[in-house]
């Protein structure tokens, strides 16, 4: 196996613990992946060594410790696969393929990070590389807010934590020109709304991490198309999952 490409290996579970209601944090011992992965990249995790479910689950790296040889992921129990994964215990083995995809284009300066729901999952890793950052997050209820990095500016739709309303409401007072890079991650509709609120003059600084169902994660099945602003589709797993906002055709994002 070449040193530059993704590695497929069995990783020992260091811990799998509830991070919030229905949200888990899993830590895996995967030294080769930990030494290679970049913020915004992802891995394909096999929930079970058996045939059920038939495909893996794509999860973005939440943190990475190259010296300890470990990586962590934050995930919602959304279906059968993540339910099985959430029952992992220390010492279990999980097959993991990674690192995959293109991550954030990291740059010096000041970052604005905007998350919707569990889109916050990858920001601790990005934050660890940023000189200075403001993090904003929106969730439906208070669920998930405990996963946000300290200092995150919060909005909840039910008003239980932070401002009542959507994350786009938090953007109204943002001094856009004070940020060198803007990172957005969350459900497609949320990202479309954030991009729509962004002044055109700073749109070139906006990167988005797209979500998609994935068949393979390593660029061959064509199962994760992202509409391109130049027509046709890009591949979320290979061309992304992080894209420049101006490269995505938001009109065709549902």
């Amino acid at each position: 196996m070449s040193s530059s490409g993704p590695v497929d290996s069995d990783a020992r579970v260091i811990a799998c613990i509830p991070a919030d209601e229905g949200i888990f944090r899993i830590a895996l011992e995967a030294p080769r992946i930990a030494s290679a992965c970049r913020p915004g990249q992802f891995a394909m995790l096999e929930p079970s060594p058996g045939a059920f479910p038939v495909s893996r689950r794509p999860l973005t790296f939440s943190s990475c410790d190259p010296e300890a040889g470990s990586v962590t992921f934050l995930f919602d129990v959304a279906g059968a696969g993540t339910s099985i994964l959430s029952r992992s215990v220390e010492g279990d083995s999980v097959r993991i393929l990674g690192p995959l995809g293109r991550g954030w284009e990291t740059a010096p300066g000041r970052w604005l990070m905007v998350a919707g729901g569990l889109g916050i999952a990858g920001f601790p890793f990005l934050l660890s590389t940023a000189d200075e950052a403001v993090v904003m997050a929106g969730t439906r209820t208070g669920r998930g807010t405990s996963c946000c990095p300290p200092g995150t500016v919060l909005a909840t739709e039910d008003g239980s934590v932070g401002m009542r309303g959507l994350v786009t409401g938090l953007l109204e007072d943002v001094e856009w020109d004070s940020f060198d890079s803007i990172a957005v991650c969350g459900p497609s509709a949320m990202m479309r709304a954030v991009v729509a609120r962004t002044p055109p003059r700073v749109l070139g600084r906006v990167q988005v991490s797209m979500e998609s169902r994935m068949g393979c994660g390593w660029g061959v099945c064509g199962g994760c198309p992202v509409p391109s602003s130049r027509g046709g589709f890009m591949s979320c797993c290979k061309d992304g999952p992080v894209f420049r906002a101006c490269d995505v055709d938001w009109e065709r994002i549902s």
Binding site: F52, P53, V54, S55, G79, A80, G81, S212, R213, M214, G215, C221, G222, G223, C224, P225, G231, G232, F233
Partner: peptide, 19 residues
């Protein structure tokens, strides 16, 4: 370009695709 997304669904027991 291929079909409109979503193109893939894991039923657990199998994979449905419409690439």
């Amino acid at each position: 370009d291929g079909n409109a997304p979503p193109r893939i669904h894991d039923t657990g027991y199998g994979l449905l695709n419409s690439i």
